[in-house]
């Protein structure tokens, strides 16, 4: 589904990702772990298509066989990529409801489908809200405006439930969450899991992986994946820290 080959990314002339390879297939859950500043969030942003400071100097990313690098951000989303933000953006004046209806209808239009009916949309909203325990009044508020850290992360998973992406990349979704909110977010992600979609969880801590169990764990260090393994690798990292990886690398 997602194939990254020998990816090189610079930020302001400095190489952050230095030849990264990653293969994600439908039905899989991947965890990318690593110390701070090793390029985890850069990788997430580059897959989602963020422009500006990122300069891709080499390699390729394809999604369902299509070259992602030439695709605008919105088309990547319409193809089925979803980025759960580490720091969700506050957008005063845009209600979550309008935001989601606009997004769903643009995705549907891209796929040659009719706009969603009001009834279907409301039904979908209810289901997604229930999944992450969002009170209905939240959806009439402006996107993320005045939300607590936990509400913002729940809102990301709510959006994921609304858009039903084929590939969800969750960037530090666990950061800033207490254990109850973490469980809600993890349960939401697990409930959305199917054989047809895939999830990439980017995290600093093993804690989230107690609730979202990965099929593969990758350690990102110094711009490269230096070690890959099963879920037991995460436990090993938790016990031993990252220093032994650094030494190996």
């Amino acid at each position: 589904m997602l194939s990254i080959k020998n990816l090189h990314v610079n930020i302001e002339g400095r190489e952050i990702i230095k030849g990264l390879d990653l293969e994600v297939k439908a039905g899989e859950v991947h965890a990318i772990m690593g110390p701070n500043g090793t390029g985890k969030s850069t990788l997430a942003s580059v897959i989602a298509g963020r422009e500006g400071i990122y300069e891709i100097t080499g390699g390729e990313i394809s999604f369902k066989g299509k070259d992602l690098l030439d695709m605008p951000v919105e088309d990547r989303a319409r193809e089925g990529i979803f980025l759960g933000f580490q720091y969700p953006v506050e957008i005063p004046g845009v209600s979550i409801t309008n935001f989601m209806r606009t997004a769903i209808n643009e995705i549907r239009q891209y796929k040659g489908l009719e706009p969603i009916s009001a009834g279907d949309f409301l039904k979908k909203m209810e289901e997604a809200k229930n999944l992450v325990g969002i009170q209905s009044k939240l959806t009439n508020r402006s996107v993320n405006e005045g939300f607590s850290g936990g509400e913002k992360k729940k809102n990301e998973i709510f959006q994921m439930a609304m858009l039903q992406p084929e590939l969800a990349i969750l960037d530090e979704t666990d950061s800033g969450l207490d254990i109850d909110a973490l469980k809600i977010v993890a349960n939401g992600v697990n409930a959305l899991k199917t054989e047809a979609n895939a999830t990439v969880v980017i995290t600093h801590y093993q804690r989230l992986l107690d609730y979202i169990v990965p099929d593969f764990v990758h350690v990102l260090f110094n711009g490269k994946i230096v070690k890959s393994g099963g879920k037991e690798l995460a436990l090993e990292l938790e016990a031993k820290g990252y220093d032994w990886i650094k030494e190996d690398a």
């Binding site: 298509g49 422009e51 933000f85 953006v89 935001f99 989601m100 997004a103 959006q159 858009l163």
Partner: peptide
């Protein structure tokens, strides 16, 4: 970017 990352042009 946030809006576009949800598929909005």
């Amino acid at each position: 970017f946030y809006l576009k990352s949800r598929g909005i042009g």
